[in-house]
């Protein structure tokens, strides 16, 4: 019963905002420049029927996933290095500061000169997520309970046992929160990179084309695709985190 109520609540909230969108589009009265939900849905349905749509969505997902995956692995490795190796933090932290302070558009324009168009979104997604995972994991490693660390030492836990039963569960909540935040960043920055680099077979390229040819219903439909994919990815990651938490017991 509660589940039905929850679904109903969400549907009503969604309907409310779609209603606002519809009303604004109606008042403006220029469906070519500000399409309403109906025009956007039609454009979306038309795009879904094309092979180019699915190829572009697939390739964008692949690029973002690649950059994101590398950033997660790289972020954890850098966090462990900074936590464990004396001097590593001092040596590596300027890199983190530079990545954080530099606007994403500057990076896109810079790497556009050096990398193939298809590789730019991968690298940009990687670069935007890396400091998020790195910082969160390093801070969580530093906050592992000192009493439990001493206990593990006293009871001669092997390195593997320490990682599996002490460090991983301690770091997990902060790490998963960072993964969730990072996913949004990877997705948005990856598509921004595709738009600027005009990456072939990409959602970003189609967004750019729709804007250039003033095909605003298509622009809205591609944006809707990005939002739906982002929500689906986040749901997948949340489900995965819940499953892992359940297995942890």
């Amino acid at each position: 019963m509660n589940r039905i109520k929850e679904i109903l609540r969400r549907v009503l909230i969604g309907a409310f905002w779609i209603g606002i969108w519809w009303a604004i589009a109606k008042v403006v009265g220029l469906p070519k420049l500000l399409p309403g939900p109906g025009e956007t849905a039609l454009a979306f349905a038309r795009l879904c029927g094309t092979e180019a749509f699915w190829r572009s969505v697939g390739m964008t997902l692949l690029r973002v996933a690649l950059g994101y995956g590398c950033a997660v692995v790289g972020g954890v490795l850098l966090a462990v290095a900074c936590h464990q190796v004396k001097g590593a933090e001092m040596l590596l932290s300027p890199l983190r500061t530079v990545i954080r302070a530099t606007p994403v558009s500057s990076f896109i324009l810079l790497v556009w000169l050096w990398l193939k168009r298809g590789h730019v979104p991968v690298f940009i997604s990687f670069l935007m997520v890396l400091p998020i995972i790195w910082t969160a994991t390093q801070e969580a490693l530093g906050a592992v309970d000192g009493d439990l660390r001493e206990m593990a030492r006293m009871y001669r836990f092997s390195r593997w046992k320490k990682i599996r039963y002490l460090y991983a569960p301690s770091v997990r909540p902060a790490f998963l929160a960072a993964c969730m935040t990072g996913l949004g960043f990877a997705w948005k920055s990856g598509i921004a990179a595709e738009v600027i680099a005009l990456t072939p077979d990409s959602v970003g390229k189609h967004l750019s084309d729709a804007k250039n040819y003033l095909e605003y219903p298509d622009l809205f439909a591609w944006t809707l695709t990005v939002i739906l994919l982002s929500m689906a990815l986040e749901a997948c990651l949340k489900a995965l985190a819940r499953k892992r938490k359940g297995e942890g017991k």
Binding site: L148, M151, M154, Y165, K249
Partner: peptide, 24 residues
């Protein structure tokens, strides 16, 4: 080889009582 019962229990909160003992 020394075994030490700390003043605090210092059990790993995310595993069962049985696992806490099994680990040592």
């Amino acid at each position: 080889k020394i075994s030490f019962l700390f003043q605090e229990d210092r059990l790993l909160p995310w595993v069962s009582a049985e696992k806490n003992v099994e680990l040592v």
